[in-house]
Design a protein around this nucleic acid. Structure first.
Lengths: 345, 345
DNA sequence: CTGAAAGCGCTTACAG
DNA sequence: CTGAAAGCGCTTACAG
């Protein structure tokens, strides 16, 4: 009945001829065990191929050694990068990462409501979505730390970029080139259709046009669910609806821009001669498509978020000047490639 | 000192006025507890916001409720899809997934060597890399099941596609169009430079040409580490090296094909008029780039792998006719788009 | 430096 | 149907 079972501490102790306590100490502390004894225990452990049962240790210790990473769309580039960055530093700090995928707002709420009581993790990092006040309190009540990646919060540490700034970088590039008639393909939150998923990037649009005294023309704006194919359709839509085509297109993300490029090419518009296109992200394929974009280091942000976790867990010496609990905003910068140029007059 | 602590089963039992055993049973079994008692316990648990400590439960139960998913490049599309598929079905079966990222062969070996003794998981699914015989045995010794996704093995269950077939699908399409001078951009394993990461896709090339009595021209073949940018360079290389350019290019993956398309465009070749291009994968961006490709459902393969895990763990009624321990090979199919056409004569 | 004992939070035969 | 008790595999004061 009992399936194969790994050697236990008791086995190690017996083989080394010491007590459980001593074996445990030899394996953990450095103190309180004579060198000779420790050596015997270590040998014994090695011979038996022993490794502590994490569950038992955790039970006794009261800590889990795990952190939950909760992401909406693990199959998308941005999230993959983020998880990759988080995993890298957390695993190095010897934490295991528990991956959870949550789809919509309902999913997220339910997940967060369940997690606290589960005590499965020491911390949770939520990627690109907010945590309600109530959930946050429950998490903190059980001692679980929480940090956000790809979004900010006043209530817990976070790392993100300044989306408004990123947007302005893209738009200022366009306007300084002389563009005035600029279309926008906005990424929209499927939970709240019609609302921008990243408000800052939309505000940048209004603000940039506003600064020029140009009114926003609704015929030039479309919301898209981040699916490139839908972005392609949206662009076609704009071309069909707007009397005069825009001279430039601002996409909230490179993946949306890819769709735009596709439609433009199919409709016979040359980029950038006829229409300029700019995105945000610096997706790995953007270089190949000569897309001008505002770059961000997503993997680096994941790593930074992981460091915030370690900090919150007291596992890292606070860097002097680092205000724990505060957020870090990662830098962004414009990368000019061949998809943007001055408008033809 | 003692940080906030969640309510324990003992609290629930006390509040309900029953013993620990009864509380436990009420929460788990359906049997052996009177309806009234169960109700009291349930109420009590609800009132206290109680949820069992997974670690304690596991310790007592002897099972972890977790499965490890080990991937080489979590930030790449293929792996993201795979993990996504795995997570979907495993989390529904109430398993937690522990994500591990391993880079190179050394990493993998070390990881697998450590895992067995750790007893952190009930099973491990390795994505797109092989597990040595020794490691496999150790894993099985401690009762951890193992299944492969994106690669096959004689020693444990797996799900993959038939890479040779996929390659032939792509190549037969090309040759039936009339192409004879076909270049190949092969994805290569960084651990074994010069070797194809996916041998079947290379064999398909040799086989398809062989069937036509055409010799493989080394000047038309390049190995690339799956980086699209390097694929672009490799294509440039071929164009520079080969006297006469190929009339078609076969890429081991769509991401490589993207690089090819880039170079072709920059060099002034029209696709497909001057040169045809075909890939494998049906990457989400392929549609936008009008790339002809051989499609595979990666997420579906992940889901299938997860089902194999459940099966191995005895958590799923064996479907009649399903041979546990065997592999499943997922179907592939050609998607013709605008990147392929007959060669100009 | 080392050991006996209690405890971490559950589950599960074993007896009522 | 219900409870007392042992056990899961470790850790950690408490005494030597």
């Amino acid at each position: 009945m009992k399936s194969q079972t790994a050697p236990s501490l008791a086995d190690v102790a017996r083989r080394a001829g010491v007590s459980l306590s001593t074996a445990s100490r030899a394996l953990n502390d450095a103190y309180g065990v004579s060198a000779a004894t420790r050596a015997r225990v270590l040998d014994s452990a090695a011979a038996l191929d022993f490794v502590v049962s994490p569950d038992a240790r955790r039970l006794a210790i009261g800590t889990t050694g795990r952190v939950a990473v909760v992401v909406p769309h693990i199959e998308r580039w941005f999230f993959g990068q983020m998880v990759s960055g988080i995993e890298r530093v957390l695993s190095e700090a010897d934490f295991d990462i528990l991956l959870y995928h949550v789809d919509d707002a309902e999913d997220r709420r339910e997940f967060l409501a369940r997690l606290p009581a589960r005590r499965k993790v020491d911390a949770v990092v939520v990627v690109a979505f907010p945590v309600g006040e109530a959930e946050r309190e429950r998490l903190e009540l059980i001692g679980a730390k929480i940090v956000a990646a790809g979004g900010q919060s006043a209530a817990y540490p976070y790392v993100c970029i300044d989306d408004f700034q990123a947007g302005r970088l893209a738009l200022d590039h366009l306007t300084s080139l002389g563009h005035r008639r600029i279309a926008m393909i906005a990424g929209s939150d499927p939970d709240q259709p019609g609302w921008p998923a990243i408000p800052g990037r939309s505000r940048a649009y209004e603000s940039a046009l506003g600064a020029l005294g140009v009114d926003v023309d609704p015929a030039l704006v479309r919301d898209v669910d981040w699916n490139p194919v839908n972005a392609a359709k949206a662009m076609a839509d704009i071309l069909d609806a707007a009397g005069e085509p825009p001279t430039a297109v601002y996409a909230h993300g490179d993946e949306l821009a890819f769709g735009v490029l596709h439609t433009l090419r199919h409709r016979g518009y040359r980029v950038p001669e006829d229409i300029s296109v700019v995105g945000i992200d610096n997706h790995p394929l953007s270089e190949l498509l000569d897309l001008t974009t505002v770059a961000q280091d997503v993997g680096g942000q994941g790593a930074a978020a992981a460091r915030l976790v370690l900090q919150a867990l007291g596992r890292e010496q606070d860097e002097p000047g680092a205000d724990p609990g505060a957020g870090v905003v990662a830098p962004v910068h414009l990368i000019e490639r061949a998809s943007t140029a001055p408008p033809r007059t």
